[in-house]
Every structure is written in structure tokens, then in C-alpha cells.
Design a protein around this nucleic acid. Sequence first.
DNA 1: TGGGATTTGTTCGTATGTATT
DNA 2: GAATACATACGAACAAATCCC
Lengths: 227, 227
Amino acid sequence: MGAICQALRRAIVERALAPGDRLPEDALGERFGVSRTIARQALGRLAGEGLVDLRRNRIAVVATPSWEDAHDTFDVRIGLERLVVRRLAGRLSAEQRQTLLDQIAREEAARNGPEAVSIRLATEFHLMLAGMTGSAVLTRYVAELGYRCALILSLYSRPHSSDCAVSEHRDIVAALVEGDIEHACALMGHHLDAVAERARIVPQTPRERDLGRLLAPYVESASGGGA
Amino acid sequence: MGAICQALRRAIVERALAPGDRLPEDALGERFGVSRTIARQALGRLAGEGLVDLRRNRIAVVATPSWEDAHDTFDVRIGLERLVVRRLAGRLSAEQRQTLLDQIAREEAARNGPEAVSIRLATEFHLMLAGMTGSAVLTRYVAELGYRCALILSLYSRPHSSDCAVSEHRDIVAALVEGDIEHACALMGHHLDAVAERARIVPQTPRERDLGRLLAPYVESASGGGA
DNA sequence: TGGGATTTGTTCGTATGTATT
DNA sequence: GAATACATACGAACAAATCCC
């Protein structure tokens, strides 16, 4: 069941699913080879995470955060990720540092590839950072907010806007290694401010709505052990 | 279904349910007059909030946060509630101010009553504050963390430890009205530090385990419109 | 160790509510 | 505006795992 959640999250982050897209229990279950019950549970969980809107007696849809929600979500995210940076500054192991640098290298390599991959990698970077604090609470909330911010950006941001973020990630890691808490905090704050700042223009591109085709690439990784 | 969640949350906050207490779906459903499906959904939701541990094929139990979890939870809570204070300082309407003072009056009046009520009122105060920011995200997370901290204190704190908090609540409101952001932030930080500091001594009082009797006072408010 | 009672995991059928023609 | 198709809500029932004596 967690596999479906993971697959849907990823589909949302990579913008294969857009806000408002319908998620019928039946179609979902059939697509992933499970019964409605399991699909239903997954939808309930995603609703708890704010990625899915679950209206009574109506079909579930990918959440469509209001502009106010978007603002508040980024606001809280910045606050929490500053906590992450505060706990991490000067305490990064060599191995952790390398893990982060590897991730940044992947982001760099993906700059000319599909934007979906860049977005997913950037989100993963923040999740890694949170995970390194060792705080399960912080990790869970940062993950949740990260996914929601990705969803928000798919609603409000203009395309090709995440390119400049890679160097900012690099700067943050450098500041963490150096151990300057305030500088690292400020960098993270500015970085996320910049990301939020992109949430200005509303493109509203018309989109394909065929759930089966949209989810096809995500079915395999759900049955197996998708990242 | 939300009614059962609310009732169980309150039962946990008021320490009618203690960490480790068993929550069989059947017994729960019978007690609240609903089927197992509904009870199950409620448990799933509470598990998502960290109040319930849900192990596969085993009976659900009230969560028992590790000491590390306890520390992390308070840490994040302090960070988030500082955000609350930061958003509220100097922006409290007269009506909001009065609402808070009324709540503090209730806390004051409950000082000589049962401790369970004091704990609930204190938790409600923080929830009110978060709600006044108008940020749904902030409100949800602060609520979740508030409930979990209450659970944690029922594990690790010594009895009769929340008495001094009332005056601190008063000071926080005063600082908010005055509009001194940094002062209000510091007060909130110190207040929650003091609350967390009580999580030191482990009493582990032996407790009654009869779910039916424990939940009896909470059944009415679930069917009706419990606060 | 073993076996019965209990409890969960899951599916499927029916009823109810919603969208569409 | 009514009827049909569709999707969800809920509950009963069965199988598998666990607990307890």
C-alpha cells in the first residue's frame, strides 16, 4: 500500500498528475493491481498529507491548494528547514557531505533533461538534508511540506524556473560544512524564498487527462521497490 | 468518523488513555456505536498523527514515543510556535485578545480541579493561538504537535507540573498585544522549554486497563458535537 | 509445545449519492 | 427534468496471523 502512495507522490512531484486530476478508486486499484480497499487507504493517507482532496461521495482529486495555502505552506517550510540547517551546521559527517554532493551532481547532470526529473531531484535534496538530522519528526514534516510545495509549484510557477537552484544547494552544503550556522540559515532562507518567489505566474496549461496513460510509468516502480 | 478521532485525542490528552493502551477495532467500534471499518479509519488517521502505533496484524496501541522522539517533537514544536508568535505579535484583534484571556481565566479556574482538565485547557490555548494566524498549515501542525506533546508529558513528566504555566500564558498574550516580536518569541521559547524540562522524571504509574470504562466519558461527546 | 479464541487484513455485495445524457 | 451510468460509503463475511492458556 505504501507503494501506491509513493508512486502517486512521485507522479505528483514530477507533474504527471496535476492539481484537479481525478483519482477514482477503481481505476487506481486496477492500474496498480490491487483492490479498491487498498487504493482507498492510499488515498486516505495522501489526503492526510494534503496531496489529495477527498470530498464525501465524490471522486478523489489531486489537491488544488489555494494561493493563500501556497503562501502559508512555503512559510512553514522555510521555518522548518531553517531548523534543519541549524541542527546540521558543523555536524555533517564526511559520508553525509559526499551523499549531498553526489545528489547535487545528479541535479547538475539533469539540468538539460526533462524538468520533471530536476524537480524530483531538488525535492530529494531537501528530504536528504532533513533525514540527516536524525529527527523523525522533522523529517516527516519537511517531506510532507516538500511534496506539497512541489505540487504548489506545478500550479503557480512558470516553467523552467528551477535551473538556478543547483548552485544554491551547493552553497548551502558548503556553509553547513564550514559550520557557520547563521550563514547557512540565511542561505536556506533565501533559497526557499527564491523558490517561493517563482510562484507568481499562473500558466494553467491544458493537460491530458487519461489516468491510465499518465500513471503507466509509475506502476512498475510501485510493484517493485521504487526509490 | 472525525468524532471518534476527536474523542480519542481528547482521551489521550486528558490521560484517560495512556501510552501502550490497547485499541482493538472491535471494542472501539462497539463503544462508539459504529462498525469496525469506521474505527479502523479513525485509527489510521491517528496513526498518521503519531498518536497511535499501528503494527501489522497486531492490535493498535496508544503510541509510546521514545525519549529521542520526545526531544525532537518538542524541538519542532518550539520552532513552529515561535513562527506563530512572530505572525501574531502586534496583530491581535480586541476580540482575539479577549478570547485568549477568557481561556486563561478558565485555566486559572481549573488549577484546583483535576489535572486532566488543566492539561487540556493548556493545550487548547496553544491551538487557539495557532488558529489565529489564519494559516491552515501552521494550525494543523501545531495541533498535531500539541497533542503529541501532551502524550509525551503523560509518559515522562512528573504529576502536578503544569501549574506554573498559566502565568506564562498571560505573559505571552501581553507581549503579543504590546507587539514586541522578539520578546514574545523569547517568552514562547522559554515557556515551551519549561514545559519540555518537566519531561525528566519517569513515574510509570500502574493503570486501569478497561477500555470500556476508560472511554465511557468520551462516547457521548463523539456522537454529539464534542468540542 | 499446542490448540482455541481473539483480532486483524482483505474482498465483495448492497445501498446511497453524484454526474451525465 | 428524468433516467441511466458511475463512484463512493458502509457493512458482512472469510482467511490468516497472533495471543493466551
